[in-house]
């Protein structure tokens, strides 16, 4: 196994227990040790309830592990305060959620800019960034519309644009194709492939064969019952 500092993401015996010591205690992630390198397209594969999403949120600095160590870009994040975790999350990760998680009554532009509000860039710079990204995704003419009025595919693109606006190194996607048909899924994968070509590391949790059998996947982590069942490089 590599040293924590070398890998982009490195975990050791990471465990996450929800509702500890209660009747409904859940051991969502159980002593997981994985490594993800810079430039990887890593897939967390497994049936629902296998702990993919929980592991994803641990890696994405959304929550703290009950025990174990997690290094992101050489930094131990397992014991940071919530505020510092947030700062790392904001600087390093872009998130694409299963159900887009957009603010339906706000405009496309506003939704895309959301992650930048606490950063404090100049508004002109923020808009420039957002416009560039929206253009790249072909939805710049939708900028002023409310998200509510967009089609599913367009909403997905807004969600991607939002994940990119803070210029993250790592894109984290949780079941990104769950609500898309084959054609739209293929479009999405093309976008992700492009991003990987631009040097971004991509981590996807999925149980969709269209995703995990895709040629661009470099690392597959199979999960079941909160544990890693198999890890494979391709």
């Amino acid at each position: 196994m590599k040293e924590p500092a070398e890998a982009l993401i490195w975990t050791e015996d990471v465990t996450k227990v929800y509702n500890p010591r209660l009747p409904d205690e859940v051991r969502a992630v159980d002593r997981v040790s994985v490594t993800i390198d810079r430039g990887d397209v890593a897939v967390l594969k497994g049936p629902s309830g296998s702990g993919k999403t929980s592991l994803l949120s641990l890696i994405g600095c959304m929550s703290r592990p009950t025990s174990g160590r997690i290094f992101v870009d050489g930094r131990d994040v397992a014991k940071l305060s919530e505020s510092l975790l947030t700062a790392i999350r904001r600087e390093t990760f872009g998130f694409i959620f299963q159900q887009y998680n957009l603010v339906p009554d706000a405009s496309v532009l506003e939704n895309v800019l959301l992650p930048l509000y606490p950063v404090g860039l100049r508004p002109s710079e923020m808009k420039q960034r957002a416009n560039r990204i929206l253009e790249g995704l072909g939805i710049e003419n939708r900028r002023r519309l409310k998200v509510r009025k967009l089609s599913g595919g367009e909403q997905q693109r807004v969600a991607i644009a939002r994940a990119l606006v803070n210029e993250p190194d790592i894109i984290v996607a949780d079941e990104p194709t769950a609500h898309l048909d084959r054609q739209r899924s293929a479009d999405l994968l093309r976008v992700l492939e492009d991003l990987n070509m631009q040097g971004k590391t991509i981590i996807i949790a999925t149980h969709d064969a269209q995703v995990y059998d895709h040629v661009f996947v470099t690392r597959t982590i199979e999960m079941g019952d909160g544990r890693v069942e198999a890890e494979r490089l391709s």
Partner: peptide, 8 residues
């Protein structure tokens, strides 16, 4: 959503 995408 705000919290998830980087609001403290």
């Amino acid at each position: 959503i705000l919290k998830a995408i980087g609001w403290d």
